[in-house]
């Protein structure tokens, strides 16, 4: 029952984030959806990742969205073609139905691999290379953003000259 409530809440927040006309409201709905997904993760027995999702997904990413909306303005959205909307909806529903039919009944029946290792062992021993690559990726992302803003400030300085 709790899973159903959290799931319906997360889906409702996601729909509101997509359909909302104002971008700022959309970002807030996204943060709520993120918090509910984090709660779902906690209920599934993954508290570590739930805390990270709550702090990064509902916190940091929302701040980034608000920052970007502040810089670009809360622009009114052009209305998409309704035929195109219905076509996309039908296509996605069909794909979801096929996925549900093919994947669900078999994969959710019973645990197939009862061998459990602690998260820290998996993260630092078995996936050490991945961990280093993630750290590298964070630096690469930060440098990319710095480069993007730097080139823009150079161009605006040239225009002023």
């Amino acid at each position: 029952m709790l899973y159903a409530l959290v799931g319906v809440g997360a889906l409702g927040c996601a729909v509101a984030a997509v359909t909302s006309k104002r971008m700022l409201i959309s970002a807030i709905w996204l943060a709520l959806a993120s918090a509910l997904v984090a709660l779902d993760m906690y209920l599934l027995g993954a508290p570590f990742i739930a805390v990270i999702e709550l702090s990064v997904g509902a916190g940091l990413v929302t701040v980034l969205f608000v920052f970007a909306i502040n810089l670009t303005g809360d622009e009114a959205l052009p209305v998409a073609n309704s035929v195109f909307k219905w076509l996309a909806l039908t296509l996605i529903l069909a794909c979801s139905g096929i996925t549900a039919y093919l994947v669900f009944p078999r994969s959710l029946l019973s645990p197939s691999n009862p061998e459990t290792l602690p998260l820290l062992t998996i993260f630092w021993d078995l996936r050490r290379l991945d961990t280093w690559l993630q750290a590298f990726l964070i630096f690469a992302g930060a440098l990319t953003v710095l480069g993007l803003f730097r080139s823009a400030s150079h161009e605006s300085a040239k225009k002023e000259e």
Binding site: G45, S112, N113, I122
Partner: peptide, 10 residues
Amino acid sequence: VSGNIGLGQS
């Protein structure tokens, strides 16, 4: 579901 929640979390 697979009984290896640590791998899923990582």
